[in-house]
Write a protein that binds this DNA or RNA. Structure first.
Lengths: 206, 206
DNA sequence: ACATGTGAAGCGCTTCACAGCG
DNA sequence: CGCTGTGAAGCGCTTCACATGT
């Protein structure tokens, strides 16, 4: 099974899903053009993306909202609940822990770790800050598969290795570093200073 | 002049810059292979990227660290100081305001705005939270060119329009929405739930 | 009539492979 | 000799344009 959905398409599936959720209640179908306008994309791109999941559209009509939402959620693995641990109980880690409770459905934050003795034992949102040596046990017992790294750059590589060793298969890295991880571990990077520098580039030429 | 540096290259320039900063003191030159290994890239890609800025390498030797750092900083517009306003004084906005003070050189946070009367007047890091109606004046007086949006999804479009109207030319959007902005305004999106969903996709097929 | 699904063309990025040059 | 700079090939994504299906 497991058709090879192109990475570029995978990145847009969450946008389609959100566009469907934003639709006024009672809306039962919509066209590729509707979706494209809402997201600032080309309609042909929308159709190609959606046709990667199978052919769920109806010619002359468009896509059935409920059915499409279901299929995208399935494709993204959002039919499951994913458990997430955060390493780094600083400002950013705390913000994500709180943000997550509200905004991110389908993901549950099940642990917050840090190695600073000042932070250990304190409470961040609904999570107690635990020491790093409890990470492996916690990942296994609580069934976490995703790790979020919000430690300073200097500690990130070490943390990534600890996460990988603990069995984490996907890492979201907020530290400004490129992580080296074992085969089979997925890393995505979210990098404030890189983003600002890219904006700076485009600002300085105009 | 403004040569047309490809977007894919622009996105990597900040990584090269950081790799140069990470180098042990005293290191005076390095090869495309060194850079490539540090960043997990193909050496040919590194050379092509760097050759876009002009030809600063020395055959048989490599690149001069100081010279290359200078050229990349120049290309990215990091010879200037960019002033940044944040809209949304929630957990994330506060985390960024504090983070920025420490980690992000070349950018200065000059204003924090929110429309909640509970937050207005309170202090976030070194910045007081100001009401939205002071945004236009503040942007002009303080010379801000970058806006960071950390409000809930429902308010993000409205905020983006206010920023554009105030003269902001670049927006970093942390809200889970696709913003529609006037011609000439650059937007970059940083989206936690999208990132998690992409990780979910790759987790669920393996 | 209308909107999807899709070959084919277009385009940009990546990678190769080697000429060029210190 | 070693490493850069770069044509050219390879590859994937985007866009077009229209055949297909209801």
């Amino acid at each position: 099974m497991k058709s090879p959905v192109p990475p570029a398409t995978v990145q847009r599936l969450p946008l389609y899903l959100r566009a469907l959720d934003d639709l006024p209640q009672g809306r039962t179908s919509l066209s590729s053009t509707d979706l494209a306008e809402h997201l600032g994309l080309n309609p042909a791109k929308v159709r190609k993306d959606l046709s990667q999941l199978g052919s769920y559209g109806v010619r002359g009509v468009g896509y059935d909202v409920e059915h499409l939402r279901f299929q995208i959620r399935l494709e993204l693995g959002m039919d499951k609940l994913w458990r997430v641990v955060i390493v780094g109980a600083g400002n950013l880690g705390s913000a994500l822990a709180n943000y997550g409770g509200l905004g991110v459905r389908g993901f549950e934050f099940v642990g917050m770790f840090d190695n600073s003795s000042e932070k250990i034992g304190s409470q961040v949102g609904s999570l107690p800050v635990e020491p790093m040596d409890q990470l492996p046990g916690a990942v296994a017992e609580r069934g976490a598969t995703i790790g979020i790294v919000t430690v300073p750059a200097g500690a990130a590589q070490e943390v990534a290795e600890a996460l990988a060793k603990a069995g984490i298969k996907s890492i979201l890295n907020f530290a400004p570093t490129v992580l080296k991880v074992p085969e089979g571990v997925h890393v995505r990077r979210v990098d404030l200073s890189t983003e600002l520098q890219v904006l700076s580039f485009y600002l300085s030429r105009q």
